[in-house]
Each structure stands twice: as structure tokens, then as C-alpha cells.
Amino acid sequence: MSAPMTRANAQPSPEASPVVIDAIDRRLIAATQSGLPLDARPYHAVARRLGLDPHDVMARLTRLQAAGVIRRIGAVPNHYALGYRANGMSVWDIPDTRIDAAGRRVGALDFVSHCYRRPRRPPLWPYNLFAMVHGRDRAEVEDKVARIAALLGPDVRAHAVLYSTRILKKTGLRIAAPSPAYPSSQGSEPCSV
């Protein structure tokens, strides 16, 4: 465990063209969102379950991944199990005119795993920049947060670190199987983003 974070592959731009998801895609998503079968031919197993051609399943997954609907296929480790016991959500109050530059600089740090702008909700919540930092212990997280503070300098009006103390739920994303709201008739009524 040398450097905690390794950079992910480039993400599809959110401005990319709309994605068309048909009824079969939705069935495929519903069948795989909790995981792939641990079968030597997992896509064939999914195809069998859905009554589809395995090559169609693989072609659809390839297309969904290229379109950014699937961010990645693979494993999601539990941070704690890998020794990252301190999980700090660092939050920062940055002037609106400086936020994009600050966000890009913080997001480029190799130990920041998520970096988002979110709205302030004064008076309870003055922070508009969120940067998730993981470490073996809180001291390691504090050290990384200090590096963010040094990088941002006078742009920081206030900041805090919220440590997670317990995972209350972690099921990942769930969508329902196709329902009357999503006609199942041969891919009609595609929804787009």
C-alpha cells in the first residue's frame, strides 16, 4: 500500500451526447447491477437468465461502457478491509469565482478519490467543495488535508473534515426491473440523458 489512490482512467465527459437506453438494456442493468455471476462464462450466464443471445449481451455492455453508463466493470473493494480505516470527507468554503480552479487542483491530487462542487446551505452548511481523503489512520488523513489547505491557500474561508464512524448501508445503485413506466415492447420509448 504505497500511494493510496491511483488515478482512474479518463471519464466520459458529462457533456457527451445523450445515451439511449432501451427496454432490453434496462433488463440487463437490473440483472447485473448487484454483480456478475461467478461463472467461467458470466455474460453467457446473464444471457441465459434473460433469454438473450450472449453476443447481444456483450455488445450491449460494450456499448453502455463506451457511452459512460457503465463507468467500469470490475471489483469494488471495501476500504476498511484494505487497511484504509480513516475515511475523511474534507469540505471547504471557496469563493464562487475561484471554485472551479480550486476543484480542478484538488481533484488532481493523487490522494483525493472524489472531488465535487455542491451547494452551500447556510447557515448550517457553508461548504461548497468536497474532497474525499482516505488514510490508514486519522493522522494520515489530517496530513493530507493540510496539504490541500496549503495548496488552496487564501481561497479557503473555512474547512472541516467529517470522518465516517460507521457504514450504515452500502448496497450500491439499484434500479427496478422494467415497470409500466418503461414499456418493455421491443425497445420503444427509450429514455435519454
Binding site: V19, G68, R71, G74, N78, G172
Partner: peptide
Amino acid sequence: AGVLSRFGPLYDAERMG
């Protein structure tokens, strides 16, 4: 053992609409 919390496609809710 819970070392992996999931194995499979990671979907982007917003790209799905």
C-alpha cells in the same frame, strides 16, 4: 469475506437518466 463489496458493472445513475 467482505473485502470486495461488489463485483460487476458500476453504473452511472445520471448517465442512465
